[in-house]
Nucleic acid binder design. Structure first.
Length: 551
RNA sequence: CGGUGAGUAGCGCAGCCUGGUAGCGCACCUGCCUUGGGAGCAGGGGGUCGCUGGUUCGAUUCCAGUCUCACCGACCA
């Protein structure tokens, strides 16, 4: 986008939207608006500056951390730049909605938000200031909220389908927004920041952060060998230990110590060749924060340096959670909590105990699908462009947003919230659709549908024909960019390719002598030499086809 | 916040080690020429060398501090 002159950086993570970029953004906004309206959501606009007291009321003033940009006004009252609007909308709704008869209702807005990201990058993909569509639904109870959620889910499907994007809706972790369940909408692109999996035979799809792993049936009747303590000098990594002892890494158990940041520690056990999913661990413990324990902390709680940790012979009482796969393991290798020592033939129950079994590992490509018998998981990279949440009563309770039901009893409102990163979606569309010459915009969000290039601006015949075509197309409601710059043809072609206009009509003196112009389709590279009127018809037909969508 | 690197013309860079009044490519302006895939020739404009202080007769260059940015890690639509 930077190269194509669509945006320009003003400060770290903060961008100017140039005319071309803005056109694309507006295009997408309008698609979002149409589909939201169609799904019975009502547009409104909330301020980007929000009072601290609302955030204190919901408890997120302290919870949200540093990416909430805070500041004081002249009276020293605290404010923040809104990173999201749950508090504001809930505050509004608790004043306005009093009766079950006022629901269901869904409000949305397209607003600039600000999150003071630690590390903004990739242009609009992860800016600090960004445009977002957010919607909030309010319902009388959980099942009504599910209906609202489904409506939004399907509206989102339509939105991204209309943009011609290759995407997946996946189950996701709810992060700091909270709530009971959520789906993310992921545009598939190799440069995506998120890893997602989908089943090759059923409809299961999830973010790797969330994706469930299915352990194999526990193998019974394995002869338990007697446990042995063995010297493993300087063997810290699982691969080293396994190689040294001559076993596969999947016969080893690795132990990791994590800290809540507020004095709590936990030991997590995983099969040696598996990877810990910190989010699963965090959620299973109900912690707000999680980080790996430091070398000193590990020494303190286990009495051993890292690299030789295990569940046997811990120095202090430590809560031990184990991945589900641990259940099925026997005669395993594990650290002895002593420098340069490991146990072999360690067995659950006999040699060590586990406080809780939880799904802790990251799934991998090829894993069995957690939902169906036949399926295997495939892995993709994706860019998160939309996210829908069932919030339940998290905010309505905190801010006491209630209504009176048919019996006149006070009830808590059930909420849902639904976001789409506007700028990010446009950026993701480009990420998914480009080649070495530049952007290949899907027509519905391209800044223009078609361009008209006059090869030689000094040739009055060419200019007249080009202008005529331009005017005729405009009259047909097609968005046309007229490139009448006095530049060499090569320059104009390159620029057209770069900014990704889907269709291009080239008017040159040679073709014009035969009454023909050229229509080029950016996506396929297809070139058609047609008489002027046919070319116009062709463009109109292609544009209509691309904009068509189910009502 | 941690690690790394960089701030010199609009953009990309050189110069700095070994102090002596700043240069290259692209872009820009003028003229000629050229017009189907980023042409050519000639001429021209443009810099408080990130900022502050120090050393020195003299600092883009050496020293100290400071700010900003980029890349890599933990957070996120």
């Amino acid at each position: 986008m930077l190269r194509a002159g669509m945006i320009r950086r003003l400060a770290a993570g903060i961008y100017n939207y140039l005319p071309l970029g803005l056109r694309s953004i507006r295009k997408f906004e309008n698609i979002v608006r149409e589909e939201m309206n169609k799904a019975d959501a009502i547009e409104m606009l909330m301020p980007s500056v929000q009072p601290a007291e609302l955030w204190q009321e919901s408890g997120r003033w302290t919870f949200y951390g540093k990416e909430l940009l805070r500041f004081n006004d002249r009276k020293d009252t605290e404010f923040c730049m809104g990173p999201t609007h749950e508090e504001v909308i809930t505050d509004m709704v608790r004043r306005e909605i009093k009766s079950y008869r006022q629901m269901p209702v869904n409000f949305y807005q397209i607003q600039t938000k600000f999150r003071d990201e630690i590390r903004p990058r990739f242009g609009l993909m992860r800016g600090r200031e960004f445009i977002m569509k957010d919607a909030y639904s309010f319902d009388v109870d959980s099942s009504a909220a599910d209906v609202s959620y489904d409506k939004m889910y399907h509206a989102y499907m339509r939105i991204f389908e209309r943009c011609g994007l290759n995407f997946r809706a996946v189950e996701a972790d709810t992060g700091s927004i909270g709530g009971s369940s959520s789906h993310e909408f992921m545009v598939l692109a190799d440069s995506g920041e998120d890893a997602i999996v989908s089943c090759d035979s059923c409809r299961y799809a999830a973010n790797v952060e969330k994706a469930e792993s299915r352990p194999p049936q526990a193998v019974s009747d394995v002869e338990l060998l007697s446990i042995l303590k063995t010297a493993t000098p300087d063997m810290k990594a699982i691969s080293d230990v396994a190689a040294f002892l001559g076993v596969e890494t999947n016969r080893t158990i690795k132990a990791l110590v994590y800290s809540s940041g507020s004095g709590d520690f936990v030991m997590a056990l995983l099969r040696g060749d598996h990877e810990l999913n910190e989010i699963k661990l965090k959620n299973s413990l109900g912690w707000n924060d999680i980080r790996m324990a430091t070398e000193e902390e590990v020494q303190f709680v286990t009495g051993s340096p890292t690299g030789f940790l295990g569940p046997i012979g811990l120095k202090t009482r430590l809560f031990v959670v184990a991945d589900l796969f641990i259940k099925g393991m026997s005669n395993s290798v594990t650290g002895a909590n002593e420098i340069d020592m490991h146990f072999v033939n360690a067995n659950l129950e006999r040699d060590f105990t586990v406080d809780r079994f939880v799904d802790l590992r990251n799934v991998e490509a090829g894993d069995a699908c957690p939902r169906c018998e036949a399926g295997k998981l495939e892995m993709w990279r994706g860019i998160e462009v939309g996210h829908v949440f069932k919030l339940g009563t998290k905010y309505s309770k905190a801010l006491s947003a209630t209504y009176l039901d048919a019996d006149g009893k006070e009830q808590t409102i059930f909420m849902g919230c639904y976001g789409i990163g506007i700028g990010r979606t446009v950026a993701a569309a480009i990420e998914q659709n480009h080649d070495e010459n530049g952007i290949i915009f899907p027509l519905p969000i391209a800044p223009f549908h078609c361009s008209v290039v006059a090869v030689n601006t000094k040739d009055s015949g060419v200019m007249a024909a080009a202008e005529e075509i331009y005017l005729k197309l405009e009259k047909l409601g097609i968005e046309v960019l007229f490139d009448d710059r006095d530049e060499r043809p090569g320059v104009k072609f390159k620029d057209n390719d770069l900014i990704g206009i889907p269709l291009r009509i080239v008017v040159g003196s040679k073709g014009l002598a035969e009454g023909k112009v050229e229509v080029k389709i950016r996506a396929t590279g297809e070139v058609l030499s047609l008489p002027i009127e046919d070319a116009i018809d062709k463009v109109q037909q292609l544009v209509e086809e691309a904009l068509k969508h189910d009502e």
